[in-house]
Simulated assay, not measured.
Amino acid sequence: MPDFLNLTGKTIVVVGVANRKSVAWLTAKTLEEQGAKVVYSVRSAARKASLTKLLADKPTFICDVEEEGASQRLAAEIIAAGHGPIHGLVHSIAFANYSEGFKPFEETKRADFLQATAISAFSLVELANAFKPHFAPGASVVTIGISSLTVTPDNYGYMGPIKAALESATRFLAKSFNPTPGVRFNVIGSGPLKTSASAGIPGYLESYLYAEKLTFRKQNLATQEVANSVVYLLSERSSGHNGATLVVDAGLGSNFFDAEIVRLAMRPEIGPPPK
């Protein structure tokens, strides 16, 4: 059977593996199934220890992108270990400090906003710059964003503007890296997912179940579906995508006026429709 994605033998760096439910892990697993060599990056020694069974015998490096110079060290260590050239990079990192719960947006603390921006958005710029000398021609960089930057969910707080910064940075990187060295940068605009990270967002379960009712199929995304799209963007079959956001949301962004949602919002007392 022809190797349609042509990922066999390609070296892909996946940054942000947290656990077996994460987009990063399912992406890496799918890449390996397609014959790619995956180099893993995790945030800390503690995280690496917690993933011993998952990442046993796999090349795994530590990079806390909040630390200045960490991205440059990561690139240097990976290349020194003989894993170059790099054909792809997955940026699957996000963090926001919700320890004090949600406040009105204007009450966002400067330190929290800047920390979340550095980790969730600017880290992509630093990683791209660090790996620039080591990218193979036609390499692909993919980051994980959100399906819509125009919605304002109460329980997402200041991460909305930061995800917008991530998407904008992706476009500017796509321009800056072209036509030389010709590296592509794209975003996966993911709908709500059932991951360990999302479980830490107050009120997320209700939002997740609401989003499910807005999908055309009345079934939320599986994280594997997002991982599949990441793998596609990493492959040469997506060569026409650059500086773009590929929305993966099962249609929820186009279904605001779903009849069931409208009925329940206007007449909640009548309950579900008869079967």
Rank of each mutant, 00 (worst) to 15 (best):
Q219K: 14
L221E: 01
G203D: 10
Y204R: 03
L205Y: 09
E206D: 15
A222Q: 14
N220I: 04
S198T: 15
K213R: 14
P202E: 03
L205R: 15
A227K: 07
S198I: 05
T195M: 02
E206G: 09
E206K: 12
T195V: 05
A222D: 15
L209C: 04
K218P: 02
A211S: 13
A199H: 06
N220K: 04
F216S: 11
A197E: 14
L209S: 11
L221M: 02
A227R: 03
T215Y: 03
T195C: 01
E225C: 09
G200E: 14
N220R: 09
G200Y: 01
S198A: 15
Q224A: 13
Y208K: 11
V226P: 05
S207Q: 12
Y210S: 13
G203T: 09
A222E: 15
R217Y: 03
L214A: 11
E206F: 05
K218G: 10
A227S: 11
A197Q: 15
Y208W: 15
L214T: 01
R217A: 07
Y204Q: 04
L214I: 00
S196E: 13
S207D: 15
T215L: 06
I201V: 14
T223M: 01
V226D: 03
S198Q: 13
L209I: 08
L221Q: 01
F216E: 08
A227W: 10
I201C: 06
S198D: 14
F216W: 12
G203Q: 09
Y204I: 06
K213Q: 14
T215R: 03
V226I: 14
P202N: 09
S207V: 07
I201E: 03
A227E: 09
E225M: 09
E212Y: 00
